[in-house]
């Protein structure tokens, strides 16, 4: 692997600065947003690099679980923050976090235990990056699907209630919105799988190849990751949409939009 110097990174950062400058001149606040995002990326990745270094040196189950918990809590916060209309109270945080926990953690555990077969199963070099990729993608799917569901329910209140008035169940009354929400959440991963290797070379595989891994080995890992991400995102999205649909109605199958509030 060719070693990257700080100067190499500074040259790449100059490109981002140039982009922020031009975006700022023509699109106002966009330039500032690009700058902040660039700074956040640098700081967050440097910090996680240090954390991973320490974790790899002292690979104890407790530390790995603590790291996983922090990742889940941050992902839950992100899901909540990305919703235009979110559930009132702890539900806005709980639905996303619970569905991501059930899907990403289960799939990661399955991959480590059954597919890759690491020893010990929580070996951080595998567990943390795998969980990170799964959580990141599941978080996108869950947040898009929940945002779509809540927003559509808000906009189509009359249609949903028209069906309830005719004796339809809550499940039937919201079935079309439920389908659209799940579809929205899964489109990114379906597109990624469809375009992989033709339109784009996935990031993980590219990283491995740049780091000197044999291409065929990198491809195998990428296929595995893609499949795991698809399953994790699918389970997480289905779970989040299912719980959200239940929460949108009460025990008398009334549409309860008073349980939603507008986000910032």
């Amino acid at each position: 692997m060719i070693h990257l110097s700080n100067l190499d990174l500074a040259i790449a950062a100059l490109l981002v600065l140039a982009l922020a400058f031009f975006a700022g001149r023509h699109h106002g606040p966009l330039g500032k947003q690009i700058l902040i995002a660039g700074i956040r990326t640098t700081i967050q990745l440097l910090l996680i690099g240090l954390v991973l270094k320490a974790l790899f040196a002292d690979a104890r189950l407790g530390w790995v679980l603590l790291m996983a918990l922090v990742m889940l809590l941050v992902a839950g916060y992100e899901v909540r923050a990305r919703q235009h209309r979110r559930f009132v109270g702890a539900w806005s945080y709980g639905i996303g976090s619970l569905s991501m926990f059930l899907s990403s953690f289960t799939v990661t555990f399955f991959a480590l235990w059954v597919v890759i077969g690491t020893d010990p199963w929580y070996q951080p070099q595998y567990a943390i990056p795998l969980l990170g990729m799964l959580l990141g993608n599941t978080m996108n799917g869950v947040s898009i699907a929940m945002d779509r569901l809540n927003q559509s329910a808000w906009e189509q209140r009359e249609r949903i209630e028209a069906r309830l008035m005719l004796g339809h169940s809550a499940r039937d009354a919201i079935s079309h919105l439920r389908q659209q929400a799940v579809r929205s959440g899964l489109i990114p991963i379906i597109n990624a799988m469809t375009a992989a290797g033709i339109v784009s070379l996935p990031g993980m595989m590219t990283g491995q190849i740049l780091a000197g891994a044999p291409p065929v080995e990198a491809v195998k890992y990428q296929i595995l990751i893609m499949f795991l991400i698809a399953v994790g995102t699918g389970l997480g999205t289905l779970g989040a949409v299912s719980i959200s649909c239940r929460r949108l109605f009460d025990e008398r199958q009334r549409l309860r939009l008073d349980r939603l509030t507008e986000g910032h």
Partner: peptide, 17 residues
Amino acid sequence: TRWRAQVCYVPSESQWW
């Protein structure tokens, strides 16, 4: 569901899906 089919409300603006 049975209650609403038996006590049926028809609003002033109809909805179609």
